[in-house]
Design a protein around this nucleic acid. Sequence first.
DNA 1: GTGTTTGCAAAGTGTTTGCAATTTA
DNA 2: TAAATTGCAAACACTTTGCAAACAC
Lengths: 140, 140
Amino acid sequence: MRQKKVSAANVTVLERLRTAGLRPTRQRLALAKLLFARGHRHVSAEQLFNEAKGHRVDVSLATVYNALHDFTAKGLLREISIDSSSSYFDTNTGNHHHFYFERSGHLEDIDDNQVEIAALPEAPGGAEISRVDVIIRIRA
Amino acid sequence: MRQKKVSAANVTVLERLRTAGLRPTRQRLALAKLLFARGHRHVSAEQLFNEAKGHRVDVSLATVYNALHDFTAKGLLREISIDSSSSYFDTNTGNHHHFYFERSGHLEDIDDNQVEIAALPEAPGGAEISRVDVIIRIRA
DNA sequence: GTGTTTGCAAAGTGTTTGCAATTTA
DNA sequence: TAAATTGCAAACACTTTGCAAACAC
């Protein structure tokens, strides 16, 4: 039974990596499983590295960085840098915004349809807007 | 004449530091003059350090960091971290937003009244919103 | 086999710290 | 003189890099 679960998760994640054009190596599979197992998450490299260790996944920190960047490059993750001390990677790659809890550094997603922007300035020189990020800072 | 100009700028900046409760030391005065000389700016510590060197202002990098943080703590600057590689300090401390040019890393202010937010979610647990940052990312 | 990915340790950035010497009030 | 500030060099945290060994296809 446990066997079956793990195996099913493996297949899903494996397909996901393949589709993205990433070789499903043992390390990438394990990390992707941790990342995409359930719900949306915001993780730092260090966090994911420790989580992997906790799950007896043998992987080096450099590989975690590689994987996070590879995943990001292929659109499986989105990088966020609100706090300059370290980068966070968001498993939610769709349109959305963030609450940022200043005291704890914690991030929380805000669904796109909860924020309504009525007016925006033109981009200088008619340049293309890549996206609009709204960050609601919470002092507590 | 040149003498007079510099002196006048000195007085203004000096008052500004005193009012903020910061001792107007030679270094802080020089840095504040560079920062607040004209218009609003976004500077990194390294940038300001180099600018100071260019103006024959003898100051250490550590002091630049100290000054930037002290100025920020006293409300003379606002810290921005969009790009995780380094922090920027904004001489515009009023309500406003930013264009972020992804290619160059350049920042540009957007006046508060150019952005109109029609709907915002409630902060979780009714927490206090410290502020709302809107970042328009330009892919070019 | 061939090209990709990994792991390690070393190097790199940007930033902070400890502390003696200097400066300000 | 007392307290704040500076400068230096060392320490830091996070991230990237170079390269040989291991791996996927």
